[in-house]
């Protein structure tokens, strides 16, 4: 309870540190905030060329939105994934790169990883806003679903925060963490339905059947990846414009709450030693 109070008391610091990240990031660039769109757009172009034009992934049209544009379908999953990856990549080094500050000033340490989440979320909001405009122009009836999109974004942000809290502490003791993470995130993107639909995994899994005679299928293992469920929720809301599967919601909530609780616990246990350990 005291911890919550302490975090509430440092919300101004959180805002200021977030603004430091946001303002400092694209300072002295000509395009400023537009750079935030550059990376997703470049990925969108190359993935669309490879997976829609060369490999020709079969995609069911959005139901009931009727959309059938691979590039847009891709962005609905790619933007949440990029946000997730950005939070983890910047969160993991958030304590180590602020070592000087931690050793000289007493303040609530938890704001350091959380400000990385908040600044990534700021860019993400901007990207999603642009996507929503594009979706609306293409005829998707996405506006009524916006409140739920915001809820889903909040859930993913909570989930990513929990992981970032754990990883930032781990990186203080083992600097390998950040390098491991970048590899795991690269693999994770291909193990999540970012550039292909889950239905393709289901088809492939059916062809194989149970693994080694057990009833466990590849699809079951695939579903252990929390991002499968998060991306499902985002695509249902943004691309299909329908109510996502309730179990997907529940799985997302469970992962988000679980990650946050464990993350805060790990962080709280270690934060007093940070000034010495760094």
């Amino acid at each position: 309870m005291n911890y919550l109070k302490e975090m509430l008391a440092s919300r101004e610091l959180l805002i200021n540190l977030t603004m430091r990240e946001v303002k400092g990031k694209y300072k002295r660039t000509v395009f400023g905030q537009l750079w935030s769109l550059a990376n997703p757009l470049a990925l969108m172009l190359i993935y669309t060329f490879v997976f829609a034009f060369i490999i020709r992934i079969e995609l069911p049209p959005g139901d009931p939105s009727g959309l059938n544009v691979f590039a847009i379908w891709l962005l609905c999953g790619l933007l949440p994934w990029i946000f997730f990856a950005n939070v983890l990549n910047s969160g993991v080094t958030s304590l180590v790169s602020n070592a000087g500050l931690i050793q000289k000033v007493a303040f609530s340490r938890v704001v350091l990883p959380l400000s990385q989440v908040a600044s990534a979320a700021y860019n993400w909001l901007f990207e999603i806003a642009v996507l929503v405009v594009v979706l609306s122009i293409l005829g998707a009836f996405v506006l009524p679903w916006l409140p739920l999109v915001v809820v889903a974004m909040a859930l993913l942000a909570v989930f990513a925060s929990g992981l970032a809290l754990m990883l930032s502490i781990a990186n203080v003791y083992f600097r390998d963490t950040q390098w491991f993470l970048s590899i795991i995130l690269q693999l994770g993107m291909y193990l999540s339905p970012v550039i292909y639909p889950v239905t393709m995994v289901a088809d492939a899994s059916e062809g194989v059947g149970g693994i080694w005679g057990t009833p466990v299928t590849i699809l079951d293992l695939y579903h252990l990846n929390p991002m499968v469920h998060f991306l499902d929720v985002f695509r249902s809301l943004l691309y299909d414009n329908r109510w996502p599967d309730p179990t997907a919601w529940l799985v997302c909530i469970a992962w988000a709450v679980g990650a946050l609780v464990v993350g805060l616990w790990v962080f709280r246990r270690n934060e007093k030693n940070l000034a010495e350990a760094l």
Binding site: E12, M19, R20, K23, G24, K27, V105
Partner: peptide
């Protein structure tokens, strides 16, 4: 916690809240 690219004014607010 001063940020080099930010102005003195912005840094006063940042540093003050730290």
């Amino acid at each position: 916690g001063f940020h080099h690219e930010l102005s003195g004014r912005e840094n006063i607010y940042l540093n003050g809240s730290i």
